[in-house]
Design a protein around this nucleic acid. Structure first.
Length: 350
DNA sequence: GCTATTTGACCTAC
DNA sequence: GTAGGTCAAATAGC
């Protein structure tokens, strides 16, 4: 390997570290943050090209996939939605590919995500249920998640939030009952987020999860952990899973695509596309939708921590980082989260 | 004792 | 009137 390539890589690492050290201030300046990311990507991209030509590497390596806390992904999508702005309806399709991994760390199940406005009159419901007018014009997000095929398949898939079950009901025409959950922090932070979890009749190993309302618990200064958008690297792990099928999307110019490149995942805006297994499909005119995130969560009292990788790890897809770096200052500690949780007293006085 | 889950009853949109 | 959604008392687990 020639020295110039190594120099280039080191330069990229330096820029990444610089970005890391300035991240706290850059989060308030999205444009600068974008530029910094773009510069780093360019440097690594250049190094990659040199390696490709020098070692006769295939020009398109198998994309390695980063697993993202779905909650963080939601926030990412929220930002994407905001960035998308006035794009025509037909251009609002965003495809994000999630790969069900087999390596270490928390591996999130492949899932389909569909966003649509609950108040939208034109959007025909995918279900046969009659439309039900909501009291609040809340956005409804529908996700499909794979249930564990071993162990307790009754446990809904982890999604990065803490939920409290408040009801379960047999649904007409469905073999499985529907579970009703609301955010654990509903009382403490008036968080309106709710979700419904139901197993599919035709596929008991798949859950359909409907999310209503946005998490506001993270907006409180004392709220449990939530990550600002740029912190998505916090919740990413790399995986050496099987090469996925290529996504067929037509990119349009947007910061999203660069962000996707940065994250080594396929993120693009397209004028169409289909949703298939493992594909996240976002459509509709989302507003302030998008739930918050957390770096860890409890599910039925069990906490799961999301592994962390360095940005350089992300870029090189090494997935070998085991260091908790200085980015930590950006994130509320799990201790804080638990302190908050412990303050979430039982809802009394009903 | 505190918190989460279960589950029958009740409320509400359609 | 019916089905979906929510409440809240009872219960379980730590």
């Amino acid at each position: 390997m020639d020295d110039s390539t190594i120099t280039l890589i080191l330069e990229g690492c330096n820029q990444a570290r610089e970005l890391e050290s300035n991240l706290a201030s850059l989060v308030k300046q999205p444009q600068l943050l974008y530029n910094s990311c773009d510069e780093i990507v360019k440097v690594f991209d250049s190094a990659k090209k040199r390696l490709q030509s020098a070692y006769d590497m295939p020009h398109e390596l198998h994309p390695q996939h980063i697993q993202i806390d779905p909650a963080i992904l939601q926030e990412l999508l929220q930002s994407i939605d905001a960035a998308r702005g006035n794009l025509p309806e037909s251009s609002r399709m965003i495809n994000v590919e999630l790969q069900q991994g087999s390596g270490g760390g928390l591996h999130l199940p492949a899932m389909d995500v569909t966003l649509h406005s609950a108040g939208g009159a034109s959007g025909a419901s995918s279900s046969s249920q009659r439309p039900r007018k909501r009291k609040e014009n809340m956005e409804v997000r529908v996700e499909r998640m794979a249930a564990p095929k071993i162990g307790n398949t009754e446990i809904p898939p982890e999604d990065g939030f803490t939920w409290r079950k408040y009801g379960q009901k047999e649904i007409m025409g469905s073999r499985f009952p529907r579970g009703y959950f609301r955010c654990t922090h509903q009382k403490l932070y008036q968080c309106p987020a709710k979700k419904q979890v139901q197993r599919l009749d035709d596929d008991p190993y798949t859950y359909e999860v409907k999310y209503r309302g946005d998490h506001t618990c993270h907006m409180s200064a004392t709220a449990p952990s939530i990550l600002p958008l740029p912190d998505i690297t916090r919740a990413m792990t790399t995986t050496t899973s099987e090469p996925p099928p290529l996504t067929s999307t037509t990119s349009t110019t947007t910061s999203v695509s660069s962000l996707g490149r940065l994250l080594s995942m396929d993120v693009s805006l397209s004028g169409g596309g289909t949703s298939s297994g493992g594909m996240i499909e976002v459509s509709g005119s989302g507003s302030a939708g998008g739930a918050g995130t957390s770096t860890g969560t409890r599910n039925y009292g069990k906490e799961v921590e999301y592994p962390v990788v360095d940005m350089a790890d992300v870029m090189f897809n090494t997935g070998v980082s085991n260091t908790i770096n200085s980015m930590d200052f950006l994130f509320p500690s799990m201790e804080d989260k638990w302190d908050s949780s412990s303050r979430d007293k039982k809802d009394t006085g009903k």
